[in-house]
């Protein structure tokens, strides 16, 4: 057996950090790489009745942890990393009713917040993110520019974007570009 340290390489390790764009301080955007904890894709089996309650049981209790993005499709996310055994335990809980695809490395979470966050995101997506139409906890799988991503409102002025790992750096650059006129502070390392 070789002797080595199992080093985790964050998806945004090479992405740019710092303050960019307008110097104004009023409505700045904050962009933050979130911990590569867990992202579980849950897919309902055919004929499964409402699973919302059951799925909440495999989540970490955070009120925006469970994200519905289509019929019988959810992402369950959280900051904690889960072992294969822990995931297997959750899969057992859903057994027969839904399957879990491990996506903790396949999907990257980016936090985006600030007074202009809806306006900045509207440069990428056609989803109406107005607070009354898109309240806290609501998710939408949509195109941001050319990249498909899951947008979730996590607070009055904060959203989370979940994107394929391979596109994470490109999306990160896009989000900075979209935020330049408001000023943006980007933190690519957790």
């Amino acid at each position: 057996m070789v002797d080595f340290a199992l080093v985790h390489r964050p998806a945004l390790a090479g992405a740019k950090s710092g303050s960019f764009g307008a110097p104004a301080t009023g409505n700045r955007i904050t962009l933050a790489a979130l911990p590569e904890g867990h992202v579980l894709q849950v897919l309902a089996s055919k004929g499964s009745a409402s699973l919302e309650e059951l799925i909440r049981q495999i989540a970490d209790g955070n009120k925006t942890a469970v994200r519905a993005y289509g019929p019988g499709q959810w992402f369950v996310v959280g900051d904690a990393t889960l072992s294969p055994a822990e995931i297997a335990g959750k899969a057992a809980l859903l057994s027969g009713k839904a399957s879990i695809a491990e996506q903790s490395h396949g999907r990257i979470r980016i936090g985006m917040s600030g007074g202009s966050v809806e306006a900045a995101l509207a440069k990428g997506t056609a989803v109406d993110l107005d607070r009354t139409k898109f309240p806290v906890g609501r998710s939408a799988m949509t195109l941001i520019g050319h990249i498909s991503a899951l947008i979730t409102r996590t607070g009055d002025e904060s959203f989370e974007v979940v994107v394929l790992r391979g596109f994470a750096e490109s999306l990160w650059d896009e989000l900075i570009q979209m935020s330049l006129e408001f000023g943006v502070d980007a933190r690519a390392t957790v």
Binding site: Q41, S45, G72, S99, A101, E102, Q103, G106, R107
Partner: peptide, 14 residues
Amino acid sequence: PDLDVQFASSTDQW
């Protein structure tokens, strides 16, 4: 649609 089958793209997971 009567078949019980689901898909998840895991290209980026691995």
